[in-house]
Design a protein around this nucleic acid. Structure first.
Length: 534
DNA sequence: AGGCCGTACTG
DNA sequence: CAGTACG
DNA sequence: GCCT
């Protein structure tokens, strides 16, 4: 084993006899989610293909998402001269899944080679139109994205599964799905290949692996090892996008976020069906207790450990402890209530209730339910309410009155955190409230958060509190890479505000009125709320 | 070896 | 200050 | 845990 090809040449060791051997391909990257592109590249190379970064005569195949993406990168003259085949990425996807090259006929990208008039026409008559979606699609990128983004859906499930692994089978939310699929399937009778070009049904191959990794996420988080936990989270999102079932660690070798340890774990899982490391954790009394305690609102890794060391092992044990804070006691008392997910329609009703209540106190007030609700989930763990007022000033002092009103209505029941900043104009001017509420006529407690923003930074609050957390991190990292600092109150030039805290605030945030302006400024492709389940 | 989001409340 | 939470 |  001469380590000939080290990191410099990150070749996934091409197999001369791989199913793609002999192919020389050029990839049209427009509108392809980078992660999937990376996976495709890796598999192509690994299975014998050669990837060229420029269009040359050696090319045997060109791959693109659709005709629009294709034409965006290549002019039609090039195309006419090109002798090889132009296929949809879907062909790759399907071939990988089936383990052999599928018939290319129904995957030709429909660009009419004769028609000079307008680009992207050709429904590719007999050959079952290689996804004409391009032809009636004005903005290819956006559409592409949405179809790709559907892939992410699987991650959600994992999320849920992760969060309440013990009980609820968890509602899978396929909402964004249904949405785009309706949009995208106007008429075309679909061949099997095409229909997979719509949001993408998550075949959920590799559930065996992601399920185990999901448990590790929770365990490491409970132990306070967020970094490691996040690594497993990222690995899951990568694995879920694979179009094939993993049968060997080799197939996963140099995918992003999958290093030595992950490979070893995957190898063990695919060969033995389990992971001894996890089994060990699950039978460990300490790990079990800490994981359990950590699920109580207000109790994190440090407190959970202390409680364990005091000898506690069950939630009942904790009730006898008076070292818990007020909020933690509430979290304990309503442990099961808070863990109960809220059906989307009930959240909607409560949002309307709050909008009505808000209007009574302050006409014109804007009350939006963010979080997973705004991201279109079928059920929500809590309510995340972002509030502002268009006049830019009367949001001040609103929150206390609003909270009182809602308490009188018996909608709000208990307080967890209550802070007010807007009055003095100190700090960021964002008022916050965390508490427990109930659906009208019920006693079941739900977590609810309010944040009141001045109008001019409202867009930032909306982005931050719509999430998800992964998107927030990505946006913040992107901002930082461009010399800015992003948080829920604004976008600042990095240098100055960087060290000092917000209160000082030598510099004001850049002004943006809408979420989209922020995305655009950062150069991040716009995502509708329901597309932000990264 | 060291980074891995950024902020605010509680006690 | 450490711990916890929020997305 | 992964990545640089």
């Amino acid at each position: 084993m001469a380590p000939k090809r080290t990191k410099t040449n990150k070749n996934p060791s091409p197999e001369p006899n791989g199913m793609f051997s002999g192919m020389v391909v050029f990839l049209v990257e427009n509108g392809v989610q980078s992660l999937r592109l990376q996976i495709w590249k890796q598999k192509l190379i690994q299975m014998g293909a050669t990837i060229e970064t420029r269009l040359s005569k050696k090319i045997t195949h060109v791959f693109a998402m659709n005709s629009n993406a294709l034409l965006q990168q290549m002019d039609r003259e090039q195309l006419q001269r090109f002798k090889g085949r132009v296929l949809l990425f879907q062909w790759l996807e399907d071939s990988l899944r089936l383990g052999e090259k599928v018939l290319e006929d129904s995957y030709y990208v429909g660009v009419d080679s004769e028609g000079k008039g307008d680009p992207v026409k050709s429904p590719v008559k007999e050959s079952a139109d290689g996804n004409t979606s391009g032809s009636d699609e004005p903005s290819p990128q956006k559409k592409m994205r949405s179809s790709l983004e559907g892939l992410v859906d699987g991650a959600d499930k994992q999320n849920n599964a992760v969060k309440n692994s013990p009980d609820s089978p968890s509602s899978s939310d396929s909402l964004p799905f249904a949405l785009s699929s309706t949009i995208m399937s106007p008429r075309t009778p679909r061949t099997p290949s095409q229909n997979s070009s719509l949001p993408y049904c998550p075949p959920d191959l590799n559930r065996n692996i992601t399920e185990i990794f999901g448990k590790l996420i929770n365990i490491y988080r409970a132990m306070g090892d967020d970094r490691r936990s996040f690594s497993y989270y990222k690995a899951i999102t990568v694995i879920e996008k694979l179009p094939y079932k993993i049968e060997s660690a080799d197939q996963v070798k140099d995918l992003p976020g999958i290093g030595k340890s992950m490979q070893d774990h995957i190898q063990e899982i695919v060969t033995t069906g389990k992971l001894s490391k996890l089994e060990h954790f699950e039978t460990d009394e300490k790990v079990r207790a800490i994981s359990l305690f950590g699920e109580v609102w207000g109790i994190g890794p440090a407190t959970a450990l202390k409680l364990y060391e005091k000898g506690y092992r069950t939630l009942d044990d904790l009730k006898n402890d008076d070292s818990l804070t007020y909020a933690q006691k509430l979290g304990l008392k309503y442990f099961h209530d808070i863990r109960t997910r809220i059906p989307r329609n009930e959240v909607q009703e409560m949002e309307q209730l709050m909008q009505k209540a808000g209007e009574e106190i302050l006409p014109g007030v804007v009350i939006i339910c963010g979080g997973s609700y705004r991201r279109g989930k079928a059920s929500c763990g809590d309510l995340d309410v972002v509030i502002t007022h268009p006049d830019g000033k009367s949001h001040k002092g609103f929150l206390p009155r609003f909270v009182n009103h809602l308490k009188n209505m018996k909608f709000l029941r208990e307080d967890l955190v209550f802070s007010i900043h807007s009055e003095e104009g100190t700090d960021s001017g964002v008022d916050t409230y965390f508490g427990l509420c109930t659906y009208p006529g019920r006693e079941l407690r739900h977590r609810i958060d309010f944040k009141v923003y001045p109008r001019d930074i409202h867009a930032f609050g909306l982005i931050a509190w719509t999430g998800n957390d992964v998107l927030n991190r990505r946006l913040r990292l992107l901002a930082e890479s461009k010399g800015y600092r992003l948080d829920d109150t604004g976008l600042y030039l990095a240098t100055q505000a960087s060290g000092g805290k917000r209160g000082a605030k030598a510099s004001a945030s850049l002004k943006f009125d809408t979420e989209k302006e922020v995305f655009d400024f950062l150069g991040f492709p716009w995502l509708e709320p329901h597309e932000r389940n990264l």
